[in-house]
Simulated assay, not measured.
Amino acid sequence: MASASSTNNCSSNSFPDDDEELNEQLRTLLLLVPDVAQTDPISILEQTRDYLRRVHEETERLEKEMPSQSRHLENLNQGGIANSSIRRRLQILRVETEKIGGNREFVVNILWKRLGPPGAAAEVQRAIEFFDLNVKSSSVLVPSFLHPDEMQTTAFVKVKKGKNMTEKELRDLLLSRFPS
């Protein structure tokens, strides 16, 4: 059983040896939770609880704002603003799609060239996510050091339930997001 004097702070070796796992967990909390002022176990746990409560409240607030942000982005897209920014930032060189797994899973390869300010990779990612696709993973790479402005985005996507799509339909859909 731990004595009261041995649990006053969380500095190394201040807890009894039989509670080493608890000591390690408390030290981990000290590293993960910002601005923990005190190092006794009760204070660490209280400050962790308060921090998690603040994170939860902020998450709820942001989730409530998301529908209005989505509508705002849709309005921008309908007005052509999003598409015009895509035109300035990148040029699509090639879009390839290949069906894998079931009839709703695809690999998408988009070869594109950066034209303007940073943000082109994000525009390609948003274009992929815009449609009824669940992106399982995606990556961006520079396929050739000779052409550093040419980039390739590869994404593994799955068409959402209730929808079927051919490779050509998916390719045409993606190309529709990048007018020439």
Rank of each mutant, 00 (worst) to 15 (best):
L26P: 08
E169Q: 15
S11G: 08
Q47T: 08
M151V: 05
M1H: 13
M151P: 00
N77Q: 12
L174Y: 05
L32G: 06
L26F: 11
C10Q: 11
R89P: 08
N9M: 04
F15C: 12
I110Y: 01
M1I: 12
G80A: 02
K161I: 11
S70R: 15
H72E: 15
M66G: 04
L146R: 02
R54V: 06
L45I: 14
A4E: 15
E123G: 08
S70Q: 14
R177T: 09
S180P: 12
R171P: 09
H72I: 02
T7V: 15
N8L: 13
N77W: 00
L73M: 13
T39N: 12
R27M: 14
L141K: 10
K158C: 06
S139C: 03
Q125L: 09
D18Q: 08
E169L: 05
E169P: 01
G116I: 00
G102Q: 07
S84K: 11
K64V: 06
I81C: 03
L141M: 10
L174G: 02
D132M: 05
G116T: 00
I44Q: 01
Q69N: 10
T166Y: 07
L62K: 14
S180R: 08
I92Q: 04
I86M: 10
V157N: 00
S12Y: 08
E60W: 04
N134F: 07
G102R: 05
S180G: 11
L175E: 13
V55D: 06
E46Y: 12
E20V: 14
S180N: 12
T7M: 15
Q47D: 01
S68A: 15
N13K: 13
V157D: 00
K158W: 01
S43T: 09
M151R: 04
L73N: 10
L73K: 03
S3C: 11
D19E: 14
V124N: 02
L175I: 03
N77I: 00
L133D: 00
G79K: 12
G116R: 01
P16W: 01
V107T: 10
A121F: 04
F145C: 00
R49Q: 11
N77F: 00
S14P: 02
N23T: 14
R114S: 11
L30D: 01
Q69S: 13
M1W: 08
F15D: 02
S70H: 13
N134E: 10
V108I: 09
F130N: 10
V157C: 00
N9T: 12
R177D: 07
M165A: 03
K136M: 10
K99Y: 04
S137Y: 07
